[in-house]
């Protein structure tokens, strides 16, 4: 009789669905591996690339912890943004590199999700220039945000803060996770080859340092074109 057909074999196959085994995995197995093989936090946002289509329609998932996550605190965040609609459009129309942007309140976080063209620092900096007051209003509602107000006079620090709170974008090709984790530890592409079977564990452990992540860099219907190129093509000016 083969292994999987034995009573014990069938029992082992069902282990992952058993409550006590899940408990064991969560409270013993995972902590053990976190101790043994800790993963540094992976940086957020799209990765730097030399190639044109990697540099347009880039995704930002800025996740900001609310200073006051109560109902009242959330309402204050809503007000801060609602009062700045003119400012936001002013920025959108004059920075020219943003495809879409939206705000979402999710649990105790305020999220700003956008699709932009070009360099991340330029994008944030150009927005500080045009709508610095909006960022100030938002940061006033965010945990640790006060130190960055006024953003116009903390340009570099604010850009770094945003970068830190932009979600890590898991690679579109799963095995690239090895490369990124190596990179975070200062190991180059010529480093040792990982055991492929450890890929699931490496993902599990990464969640400890990056509890929220973006699944890949997103899917695009018309990749490769900037907002201005699309506007030009549609005949709506840029």
């Amino acid at each position: 009789m083969s292994n999987e057909e034995s009573w014990f074999g069938r029992f082992v196959d069902t282990l992952p669905t058993k409550g006590w085994f899940k408990f064991l995995s969560k409270y013993v197995v995972t902590p053990y591996w976190l101790w043994k093989d800790p993963k540094p936090k992976l940086p957020g946002g799209p990765r730097v690339s030399s190639q044109p289509s990697d540099n347009v329609q880039r995704m930002m998932n800025l996740i900001m912890p609310l200073k006051d996550p109560s109902e009242i605190g959330k309402a204050r965040a809503v007000m801060a943004i609602a009062q700045n609609v003119d400012e936001i459009f002013g920025g959108l129309d004059n920075v020219g590199t943003v495809h879409f942007a939206r705000f979402v309140i999710l649990g105790d976080k305020l999220c700003m999700i956008s699709v932009y063209d070009g360099d991340f620092s330029n994008y944030i900096r150009d927005f500080i220039v045009t709508v610095g007051s909006v960022f100030d209003a938002i940061m006033a509602e965010i945990e640790g945000g006060s130190a960055l107000i006024p953003t116009e006079q903390n340009v570099e620090a604010f850009i770094e803060w945003v970068h830190e709170h932009d979600l890590f974008q898991a690679p579109d090709f799963p095995t690239e996770l090895f490369t990124l984790q190596d990179q975070a530890k200062g190991i180059g592409p010529d480093g040792p080859v990982h055991d492929l079977s450890t890929l699931p564990r490496n993902l599990v452990l990464q969640f400890h340092s990056n509890p929220d992540i973006s699944l890949g860099g997103g899917y695009r219907a018309y990749p490769g074109f900037s907002a201005a190129q699309i506007r030009e093509k549609l005949g709506v000016g840029w």
Partner: peptide, 14 residues
């Protein structure tokens, strides 16, 4: 990054 390479400043050169 954005201008010399990529050419983001004008749709005709992006």
């Amino acid at each position: 990054y954005d201008w010399l390479n990529l050419g983001l400043q004008h749709p005709d050169i992006t």
